[in-house]
Design a protein around this nucleic acid. Sequence first.
RNA 1: GGCGACGUGGCCGAGUGGUUAGGCAGAGGUCUGCAAAACCUUGUACAGCGGUUCAAAUCCGCUCGUCGCCUCCA
Length: 480
Amino acid sequence: MPLQIYNSYSGKKEPFMSVQEGQASMYVCGPTVYSDSHLGHAKAYVSFDVILRYLRYRGYKTFYVQNITDVGHLLGEDNDGEDRMLKQARELDQEPMVVAENFTRRHFEVMDCLGVIRPDISPRATGHIPEQLEAIEILLKKGLAYESNGSVYFEISKDPKYGELSNRIIEEMQGGARVKVRSEKRHPGDFALWKKAEKGHLMRWRDPFSGWGYPGWHTECVVMSTRYLGKEFDIHGGGMDLKFPHHECEIAQARGLEKPFARNWIHTNILTVGGQKMSKSTGNFITLFDLFKKFDPLIIRYFIAASHYRSVVDFSERALGDANNSLNRLKQTVKKLRDNKQSKIKSKGKYFVEYKKRFCHAMDDDFSTPKAFAVLFELSHEVNNLLSKRDPDQEAIADAECLFSSLGGDVLGIIPESIEKEQVDLNLKGVLDIFVELRTNLRNRKDYENADLIRDRLDDIGIVFKDSHEGTGWEKKNKN
RNA sequence: GGCGACGUGGCCGAGUGGUUAGGCAGAGGUCUGCAAAACCUUGUACAGCGGUUCAAAUCCGCUCGUCGCCUCCA
């Protein structure tokens, strides 16, 4: 069965047919880098990361482009609004490009923590001004855009298919929306391709229209996606909130430029807090930097990946706590598996083949991670039973370990290559080994009072002792 | 107002005409000196109302409710 992807252009699941066989090209709208990325961004980028990883797992040669928007879009309405980048630059008393550079770095830093694989290319909007101007001139020549007062607008009424992506009819678009007073636009829905720069505007470029200007929002993505992925590529993604106007406007331009553009549109759903959308403008956001102080990034990744990318996820600390418990269940199994595995035995893929099949079947169905996780939990269950036997089959252990590493690790990204051990320095390990020995001696002497004292006091500082037939083991507690 | 998504047991979350999703939390048990972990047992839910059907959480209609987009947003 082929991979099925929900195409939000058609509103249906469609078999994935890539432009070039065996390859998968994907463009995802990246962040506007004027402030720190928050949990809502994580939802989008972790979702696309899982999609990318699964495409790779399925054998596609992937090419992933995600832009960095380093020119601001207007805050308010039309001309009286303020550019976000410039506002932040003024508040931080920094050059706009310094602001962009810093927040770009910080964005990658938090994404790295979340295990999000970096895009192959992260093109900047400001690095593609000539390409954007070129596209704008073509649209002007074709009569799809017009110049007004030094700015250039795309005339949506010239595109008969405008609105097809988001199911909108131009004539009905004003209903309920605020009425624009004065405008350079012919129709309120027309969107800026290029804006005339007022005096003192810090980010501006030479243009053939009024002398100085800066690009509108939607052109960068059309230009950069097609430059690097070709006129026609496989997947164009972004958050649900970008569907209109952003993606609609991209499509209109691509059509005007006679580019076939994206075959599949994937939109990830939003993340809410107490039922309300998390967003920068409402202020109800929590940055990933702050969240990492309390929760391991892997928990956050699990929390996001465990729900379907098209579902709304509601954030709460309680939910993250639950996610942590669930994730621990899988991690415990993998840890035991690795502790029991004999290194010389290699996986031959003989055991648990049904689980792998079911996992892939779930992921083939529009990347249904909730079902995929259920399969992993069932596998975990069976593996735990296997491990509790006296002499578990080593080949089965190797196969199970391999499955968890590939499905849970490579694809879902929630099983690290080594569990716990990496964060523990050697001194701590040495000290703890002494305590284990001491406690064992005390237990053998049935001095439970002092044996338990050691366990309780270590527990207080985040080290958990676990007794079993083979002796006492220990592990670090999770942050929360 | 327009467009769209959605409403499943305490919470999260699959399912989609008749047969166990899965996880967390809770309860009881096994193991253990006691814990922890693991394992076993335990929940008969599908917003409401009407209709189709031998049979509906699943199809159809209506109602109610929640959320998103229509302004920058992932």
